[in-house]
């Protein structure tokens, strides 16, 4: 069953901040992993798990659940942290990230952890898997179950993405809601210098998709866009969510060098202090 709690936007913002702190702690403890993407995605994941998705942490395989595919598997720390916050498993387990025997693999593996829908990491294949799921659900007349897919901007260099884009448009897969984490960075640098993606909106529209463009660090905007997407029946929907990579941690924001690196101990302390005080907006660290 879905636990529809009436969180206020302020509640959700607080939760997203908690998830960011958990991400910093996990990554520092693991000593490797990606920082920028997961921090930037914290608001989207909070919106999805605490407001948008129909899911049940006590029954991850619930047959009526919505499906969330994470295509850019390297951002999985945000999913693990959000799942722990939502009650899928204890927060203590977050500290096993990337360790031998952990359910929290460096890149997500479906078979290891209930609640993951796919195994991902190699980029470009999440949208096609979502398309397959959407087709299958339609064949079974299960269109009340939505298929969400979170993907990165950099992975749209992959041809596989555009193969999937064409197929989803051809079959009018209106039960897919895709969210692009448009943070403008990838490993080698800014997306527009590595391999220009713009005009991204035009590209998706030309491929037959309905495009919504939002501030992906605005939780309310994410929730509204997902609602709006459900009303589009003729086409699949792409939400281009503009996010700040490294969001919430001043020295990580907008810097592509943090794409694939974790904070060291001193950096983690600094980051946590900033997150606890919401960048100085909160005076007491005990709030």
């Amino acid at each position: 069953m879905a636990k529809a709690k009436n969180y206020t936007i302020a509640d959700l913002e607080k939760r997203a901040n908690q998830i960011r702190m958990d991400i910093i702690k996990m990554l520092e403890h693991a000593g490797s992993g990606h920082s920028a993407g997961p921090l930037g995605l914290a608001d989207i994941f909070t919106a999805l798990y605490f407001k948008v998705l129909k899911h049940d942490p006590d029954n991850p395989d619930w047959e009526e659940r919505d499906i969330l595919v994470l295509s850019n598997g390297h951002c999985v720390p945000v999913r693990y942290a959000t799942m722990a916050n939502a009650g899928y498993f204890s927060k203590k387990e977050l500290m096993t990230l990337r360790q031998m025997g952990s359910r929290l693999q460096g890149h997500p593996e479906r078979l290891r952890l209930p609640g993951l829908e796919t195994t991902s990491g190699p980029l470009g294949s999440g949208l096609s898997q979502a398309a397959g799921m959407a087709l299958g659900l339609r064949m079974d007349k299960q269109q009340h179950r939505w298929v969400y897919v979170v993907m990165s901007d950099g992975e749209q260099d992959e041809g596989n993405i555009w193969e999937a884009a064409m197929l989803a448009a051809k079959y009018k897969l209106n039960n897919i809601i895709a969210i692009t984490d448009r943070n403008n960075i990838q490993i080698d640098g800014p997306t527009e210098s590595v391999m220009p993606l713009e005009n991204l909106r035009d590209k998706w529209e030309a491929f037959g998709w309905h495009v919504l463009e939002i501030d992906g660090n605005d939780i309310e905007a994410v929730i509204d866009a997902c609602q709006m997407a459900k009303a589009i029946v003729e086409k699949p929907v792409m939400i281009i969510a503009h996010t700040v990579p490294g969001k919430g941690v001043d020295f990580m924001e907008y810097d592509f060098h943090w794409h694939g690196s974790p904070p060291n101990h001193e950096q983690a302390i600094k980051a946590l202090k900033e997150l606890r005080t919401l960048g100085g907006k909160i005076r007491s660290e005990h709030e």
Partner: peptide, 18 residues
């Protein structure tokens, strides 16, 4: 799926998932 073999198998994976 058209001439798109990467999509072919990944759409297949999604269908198997449901």
């Amino acid at each position: 799926a058209g001439v798109a073999e990467q999509n072919l198998v990944t759409v297949g994976s999604g269908l198997a998932a449901v």
